[in-house]
């Protein structure tokens, strides 16, 4: 089956020779290894990407299902070498330690902003409830997202 989709703004054609998940398509075929696999059952959120504006676990989506979709991964967040404000705030507020959950966290936060540019703290917490982080205790991450809202 041939699938045709947009990945980080770029039209892409892939000839799927076997059934696979979206995460495998991204990591193995497209070498977009920013998307991480932590649990393979949709519990940790490390593999979060955006499909048609919505955050999804790429370990729960079949590659066929993104045919004609718009997919954004962590590699698509910065414009060239210029980090987005969200990424900059992750740096500034110490929202990163080991960094393994970071791509998924960023994608969940990015998806939140696509839908709601001025989320409340509770909405921010809900947006990342499906992203497990074992290092940061979440507080600096919430701070980074909050500051992106307020433009601090």
């Amino acid at each position: 089956m041939i699938i045709n989709f947009k990945i980080n703004g770029k039209e892409t054609l892939i000839n799927l020779t076997k059934n696979k998940r979206l995460i495998d398509l991204l990591r193995d075929d497209l070498k977009l290894t920013g998307t991480k696999e932590g649990c393979s059952i949709g519990e940790c959120g490390a593999c979060t990407v955006i499909v048609n504006g919505k955050a999804v676990n790429s370990c729960l989506v079949l590659a066929q299902q993104v045919d004609e979709c718009d997919v954004i991964t962590v590699e698509g967040l910065a414009e060239g070498n210029k980090l987005s404000e969200l990424q900059q705030n992750f740096l500034k507020y110490g929202a990163i330690q080991c960094g393994f959950c970071t791509p998924g966290m960023l994608m969940s936060a990015y998806a939140l902003f696509l839908e709601n540019p001025t989320p409340s703290r509770e909405e921010i917490e809900t947006a990342i409830e499906g992203n497990l982080c074992r290092c940061t205790g979440y507080k600096p991450i919430i701070q980074a997202i909050t500051s992106t809202v307020s433009g601090e």
């Binding site: 949709g42 919505k54 969940s108 998806a111 409830e129 499906g130």
Partner: peptide
């Protein structure tokens, strides 16, 4: 139900 990622699918 689940997380946002789950509810979106």
């Amino acid at each position: 139900v689940g997380s946002i990622q789950i509810r979106n699918r």
